[in-house]
Computed example of a mutant assay.
Amino acid sequence: MRLGITVLDDDGGQLRALQRWLLRDPDSAGATLTLRGRNATPGAMGPGLDLIDVVLSNAVGLGGLLVAVATWRRSRGNAPRVQVEREGVTVTVSGADAEQIERLVRQLTAPTAEPDDGTPATAATLDRPRP
């Protein structure tokens, strides 16, 4: 399973910090993490880095990866917004409670429905804090 992780409103420093966090976090163990430009091919040099390209061997590790991302956000003073994208479905990680992580996993692993106009469906982001 391939994912792209983006830290919004970032100059690149936050993205590198998130990658270092994920490489050390046991919840994201087993994931292959590579920094790259959004339109660059893996291994090619480009103008800048704007996402972490993640490869998971199966969907089981997705929940752990999302928990690690949410934990990293909480550790930062400004709690940067983080988006995770898979096959045209984009979600925003904003909390680490089990219910929200399960919802994000379902959104990222569900088959995407094709709207009538032929454009891929995008999952709603979950930026709302839990009541």
Score class of each variant (00 low, 15 high):
residue 20 R to P: 01
residue 123 A to S: 15
residue 56 L to G: 04
residue 75 S to L: 08
residue 124 A to S: 12
residue 20 R to Y: 03
residue 98 A to N: 11
residue 116 D to E: 15
residue 16 R to K: 12
residue 12 G to I: 10
residue 13 G to N: 11
residue 53 D to E: 07
residue 6 T to S: 06
residue 70 A to W: 00
residue 68 A to M: 01
residue 75 S to Q: 10
residue 113 A to Q: 15
residue 61 G to R: 06
residue 64 G to Y: 04
residue 45 M to R: 13
residue 63 G to S: 02
residue 60 V to M: 02
residue 3 L to Y: 15
residue 34 T to I: 10
residue 39 N to I: 00
residue 96 A to N: 12
residue 63 G to E: 01
residue 30 G to L: 12
residue 95 G to D: 15
residue 125 T to W: 11
residue 81 R to M: 12
residue 57 S to R: 09
residue 94 S to H: 10
residue 109 T to N: 09
residue 4 G to R: 13
residue 19 Q to G: 04
residue 130 R to H: 13
residue 119 T to D: 13
residue 19 Q to V: 01
residue 99 E to Q: 14
residue 77 G to H: 05
residue 13 G to D: 14
residue 83 Q to H: 14
residue 47 P to S: 13
residue 73 R to I: 08
residue 57 S to A: 11
residue 12 G to Q: 12
residue 127 D to Q: 08
residue 103 R to S: 12
residue 45 M to F: 11
residue 43 G to I: 06
residue 129 P to G: 07
residue 118 G to N: 10
residue 8 L to N: 13
residue 59 A to S: 09
residue 103 R to F: 03
residue 95 G to R: 11
residue 58 N to F: 01
residue 53 D to P: 00
residue 96 A to C: 10
residue 15 L to Y: 06
residue 16 R to P: 03
residue 104 L to N: 08
residue 51 L to N: 03
